[in-house]
Amino acid sequence: MNDQGNAIPIQKDKPIVPIRPRDAASLLLIDRSGKDLRILMGKRHMRHVFMPGKFVFPGGRTEPADGRISAIAELSDIDQAKLLTGMGSRSSVQRCRAIALSAIRETYEEAGLLLGRRHPDTVSISHPDWAAFVERGILPDLSVLRYFARATTPPGRSRRFDTRFFLAFRDAVADTLPETTGPSQELEELCWLPFHEANQLDIPEITRTIIKEAEAILAANPALAPGNDVIRFRMKYGRFVREVF
């Protein structure tokens, strides 16, 4: 009752509307030029609402336009088939390409590294996000990517992502911006670190888990030939599970 003796209506909790996870991609770029393998990490700017100050791999949301970008070589048949697995009714080759290409685009935007190969003819990509590739005559190369892990943000979060993780060697970088970061400036303090040092950084737990999986893949398949297992992490029956396919 309020001060006037009138009944106060009971506020019912609003039902939680399920949020469909957005496609995202992340790239673990590996430098094999020295004695120890080194992985590229960058610190998220403190202005970010999502994981400020944490060290992560380059990556971000997939945009539908990514799937229409030309490439000098496509994903291996095995990697494409593994990406198609679990896509359900929204499964398509273009969506596979979009996810893989977004890993390359985000690596450029956040780290200033262009994965691909120079093309003898004029490169024609009209989308502005790929202008740096056009200016340098580089087409992205999907064949160097190895799909190896997938993680889905648990339900109930305000932001959810269905992130696919790829491995590639630093050898696949065709050009590098002179700046110490990418044009988006989302990552700072970019560094190449041995795996054990990367694990000592301030990193999210899922990042630590993905690093461990990457180490295992590289130990079993040091040349990153197509055909490795793909590890999926997701909530199932109220708990976080690891699945292999």
Rank of each mutant, 00 (worst) to 15 (best):
A25I: 05
V173M: 04
A220W: 04
H127G: 03
E197D: 09
Q4W: 14
L115R: 06
P15G: 04
F166D: 01
H119C: 02
R160I: 00
L40Q: 08
R95P: 15
F233T: 00
F57M: 14
E110Y: 02
Y108C: 08
K212Q: 10
A220M: 05
M46G: 09
N6E: 12
Q94W: 05
L167K: 02
L83G: 03
F166Q: 02
A219C: 13
G182H: 04
L167S: 04
R68N: 14
G156S: 04
A98H: 06
E243A: 03
E215C: 13
F169V: 00
S102R: 15
Y108S: 04
S143D: 11
D175P: 13
I217E: 07
W192Q: 00
A24Q: 11
D31R: 14
A151G: 11
A131G: 06
G67H: 01
L40Y: 13
T180P: 14
W192S: 00
G137M: 07
E189Y: 15
D141K: 07
A198F: 01
A132G: 02
G116I: 01
V134G: 06
T153D: 05
G86N: 09
Q80G: 05
P183R: 04
D202I: 03
T153C: 00
P58Y: 14
E110I: 04
P226L: 07
A172N: 03
L193E: 06
D31S: 12
G59I: 10
L28A: 13
P194H: 07
S33W: 08
A131D: 10
N199Y: 13
H119P: 08
R164D: 09
I210L: 03
